[in-house]
Simulated assay, not measured.
Amino acid sequence: MSATPMLWPRRLPQVGREAIIAEPSPRDSMAAIALAAAVIEARHGERIMASFAADHVIPDAGPFRDAVRTAVEAARTGKVVTIGITPDSPSSAFGYIKAGAGLAEAPGAFAVEAFTEKPDEETATAMLDEGGYSWNAGMFVVSTSVLLAHLSRLQPTLATGVREIAAAWDRPERDQVLARVWPTLTKIAIDHAIAEPVAAEGGVAMVPGDFAWHDVGDFDSLASLLKAGDDGAIRIGRTSPVSLVDADGAVVVGGTKPLAVVGISDAVVVETDEAILVTRRPAAQRVKDVALPQ
Score class of each variant (00 low, 15 high):
157 T>E: 15
115 F>E: 03
126 A>I: 02
153 R>S: 13
120 D>L: 09
123 T>P: 02
93 A>C: 00
135 W>N: 10
132 G>R: 07
144 T>M: 11
145 S>E: 10
134 S>W: 15
144 T>G: 11
135 W>L: 15
88 D>W: 08
104 A>S: 13
75 A>Y: 03
146 V>Y: 05
106 A>W: 03
94 F>T: 09
130 E>I: 00
87 P>R: 02
94 F>E: 11
128 L>Q: 07
92 S>M: 06
136 N>M: 08
125 T>V: 02
92 S>R: 09
84 G>S: 01
145 S>T: 15
94 F>W: 12
134 S>K: 05
124 A>H: 05
79 K>A: 12
126 A>G: 15
120 D>K: 03
123 T>H: 07
97 I>N: 00
133 Y>T: 00
118 K>R: 15
96 Y>E: 05
100 G>P: 03
155 Q>I: 02
154 L>T: 05
103 L>M: 13
124 A>P: 06
96 Y>R: 03
95 G>L: 08
121 E>W: 00
92 S>T: 04
123 T>V: 15
75 A>S: 13
138 G>Y: 11
139 M>G: 01
125 T>Q: 04
135 W>F: 15
72 V>T: 11
146 V>G: 10
137 A>I: 02
88 D>C: 01
98 K>G: 06
112 V>G: 04
144 T>W: 07
72 V>M: 13
157 T>S: 11
87 P>N: 04
131 G>D: 08
128 L>Y: 06
112 V>C: 02
138 G>L: 14
137 A>L: 06
141 V>N: 08
96 Y>A: 04
89 S>V: 09
116 T>D: 12
125 T>D: 01
114 A>M: 09
100 G>E: 09
140 F>S: 10
81 V>W: 10
142 V>R: 12
106 A>F: 01
75 A>W: 08
112 V>F: 07
96 Y>D: 02
110 F>Q: 08
129 D>K: 15
111 A>F: 00
73 E>R: 15
117 E>L: 13
131 G>W: 08
102 G>H: 02
114 A>G: 12
129 D>P: 02
88 D>S: 07
114 A>Y: 03
130 E>M: 05
